[in-house]
């Protein structure tokens, strides 16, 4: 079985995504190729509509791939079924969204343990302990029993990051994680990501903010569904 480039943590070949609205095709991604090594910090920068969210959705497998191949940590993502994808995603990926996506009816602690529940990774008693440790790592242990509505946006995003880390994934995908936060809060979030890089994680972050370029190791500039410049690598 072809597992792609063994060196690469993420390998994308001829990735194509086409949407059909009103029967007319719209190419969100047109033949994208790249490869990301372990522990790289990659920023995907582009305007709205450039296809950057589509790209990250292809990597996480939350949207159907129209054509091409995506390998993440040795797994052929394009070949997985819906249920396999869900489990694989839960175990191998940490996904962070622009609008946090915490479940409003569950406490912060439960939001984190829920992810372990679905993947069956930790026994119930242990999962709570681990969730507390993760909350502690984003300095929110004191708020563990609160509901998401009771904390600020920046705090929500920290919980979302803690949740993304439950199963200790090698790869973290973040879609505009600071898009809804003010400048000061954004800084805290970026520091957490820096810390994760220091711990050896691979991070792909999407943003329309050009200043992201200064924070990451490598930048992919996306425009009209194509990578127009790819920091450091030949296209």
């Amino acid at each position: 079985m072809d597992t792609g480039n063994r060196e690469a943590m993420i390998e994308v070949r001829n990735l194509v995504k086409t949407y059909y609205t009103g029967g007319k095709p719209f190419s969100a991604l047109r033949s994208v190729n790249f490869s990301i090594s372990a522990n790289e910090y990659v920023g995907v920068i582009g305007k709205s509509g450039a296809g950057k969210t589509t790209l990250i959705n292809m990597l996480s497998g939350v949207d159907q791939i129209t054509g091409g191949e995506v390998y993440v940590n040795g797994t052929a993502v394009h070949a997985l079924g819906d249920d396999q994808l869900a489990l694989w995603r839960g175990l191998n990926l940490g996904v962070v969204f622009q609008s946090f996506h915490l479940l409003p009816m569950l406490s912060l602690l439960d939001n984190i343990t829920l992810a372990m529940d679905f993947c069956g990774t930790y026994r119930h008693g242990k999962s709570e302990k681990r969730a507390m440790a993760l909350l502690d790592s984003v300095e929110l242990a004191d708020h563990a029993r609160k509901l998401p509505a009771q904390i600020s946006g920046g705090e929500k995003q920290r919980v979302a990051i803690a949740r993304a880390l439950v199963n200790d994934p090698a790869v973290i995908l973040a879609d505009e994680p600071t898009g809804r936060l003010d400048s000061a809060t954004s800084e805290t979030i970026f520091r957490i990501f820096d810390h994760l890089i220091a711990r050896g994680k691979t991070i792909v972050m999407v943003s329309h903010d050009r200043t992201l370029a200064d924070r990451v190791n490598r930048v992919f500039n996306l425009e009209d569904g194509q990578i127009i410049s790819n920091g450091g690598e030949e296209l």
């Binding site: 719209f26 305007k47 709205s48 509509g49 425009e223 009209d224």
Partner: peptide
């Protein structure tokens, strides 16, 4: 309100 947010460059 972000009228071109969901449009490609040419349409925008």
């Amino acid at each position: 309100d972000e009228p071109t947010g969901n449009l490609d460059l040419k349409t925008a």
